[in-house]
Design a protein around this nucleic acid. Sequence first.
DNA 1: GCCTAGGTCCCGTTA
DNA 2: TAACGGGGCCTAGGC
Lengths: 281, 281
Amino acid sequence: MDRGTDADPPTPGPTTLHAPTHRETLWALEEAFGEGALVTVFGRCTVEYEGRAASSLGPGDRLLILKPDGSALVHTDENQSPVNWQPPGSEHRAAVRDGRLRVRSTRENPDERLDVRFERVHQFSGLPVTGGRSLEVTGSEADLKRRVLERPDLVEAGFTPLATERESAAGPIDVYGEDAEGTPVVVELKRKRVGPDAVGQLKRYVEAVSRERADDRSVRGLLVAPSVTDRARAMLEHDGLEFVAMAPPVSEESAESAESDSSSDSGESSDPSPSSAESDD
Amino acid sequence: MDRGTDADPPTPGPTTLHAPTHRETLWALEEAFGEGALVTVFGRCTVEYEGRAASSLGPGDRLLILKPDGSALVHTDENQSPVNWQPPGSEHRAAVRDGRLRVRSTRENPDERLDVRFERVHQFSGLPVTGGRSLEVTGSEADLKRRVLERPDLVEAGFTPLATERESAAGPIDVYGEDAEGTPVVVELKRKRVGPDAVGQLKRYVEAVSRERADDRSVRGLLVAPSVTDRARAMLEHDGLEFVAMAPPVSEESAESAESDSSSDSGESSDPSPSSAESDD
DNA sequence: GCCTAGGTCCCGTTA
DNA sequence: TAACGGGGCCTAGGC
């Protein structure tokens, strides 16, 4: 009851094949690509990759996703990240060779190649993906920066921001300004708890500015973040750098709306599975 | 010749529903989860996320992937990375509310919630994923380290490695050793071209070791990588650090095998399409 | 194209 | 568990 293979005139819906032959899959792949659809292929396959690094994956049933922008993803049943992939801009090609379906995705600069060889295809789908793909995110470092610029007193009484992304020999400085005494202040922002790397980054910027000013040792360095690890704190103190606790605002008016899921009584469903799933009460 | 759709008693094959009702999808979801299958849902939906950050995504046709390990992924037609997601270990729950299917994935520590609300489901699939999911990767920093330990002379004549992952106040040092004169050497390895961050990292380690040795300024710092950016090189020179060009070995015996796709003559298919591709004959 | 840094980074390893 | 650093990181923004 669900073979929609042959009739899709205006807006083609999903096209799905069950246990297709390799050749049928090949045809469907070409058609789906021509329509700009996203393709998923589920089947028993091996995967070889060679490029910036190299890898090999033995046989198993996995999900291959091919996007119209040239991305390729191979997913197993574990992990958020694909086990193998190819970045956007790659070229996908398919062929039947030695009785097997081979999907090859390549790109240049760097030269990379991903080969997925299917011993058997369990399912093919061509999915016309549409709609917005960009989203607004709040809680980023950019939000924290806005906050600091709007309320520099939250950093320190008398702090005056003078520039953002100010260039230095060590790289761009998040926020550059001066304190109440007119002493230069280098501010490094982090949206979450920071470790040694962020301290090193701040230190580099402070030294670069000090050098610019003929080794003016009075340049201050401020790390603005929700918190720091012990080691990072020790490094800050050793280097004479300062820390100001501040977290990015969750959202502009994100006061509330979390109530949206209180009253419920419909087809609640939850499931008890090994490591996924769910629950209820 | 390979239609195995209807007869698979032991290992259930893929389950697919076309344009199912929300309630049908709900049932299928529960069953698929119970079987430890990977689930894909393709349909028109909105996505809300709140946790470490917050985001909102308007209506569109997208692909939702739910893994048995608790991962959730929302993919559009662009980019290798999902537009929204939930890490492994999350709990997936589904419900029909107000006539719509809602899939909610939550986790704690940190508290995060992903809500995918389907206005319409075009396709549901339950896919039994099996087989290996780990792979051997060559060309990593670990390979470069092995190379350095086996052939320390490639770093510098007379260099003697003494320890790897040696602890310091600034963190673990990739390779620690001494040169022909017995001077301590801190080696930081990078598998690819490096920028300012790697220089900062090396500098931190060198300073930490110097301090350990009562401010012994003779401690040397060596950055071993394929290449460095201009700015990184300037930082190295300014800080009295050294650079040795070395790339990780591609593979043990990875001499050749790229010839494997010369002789071909089957259903070769390639294609010239905008950014994806495909084929012809 | 390269460079630089952020990310709901993810991920493995270790203390 | 937290912390620390690698990654075929990916992605965006400048230049």
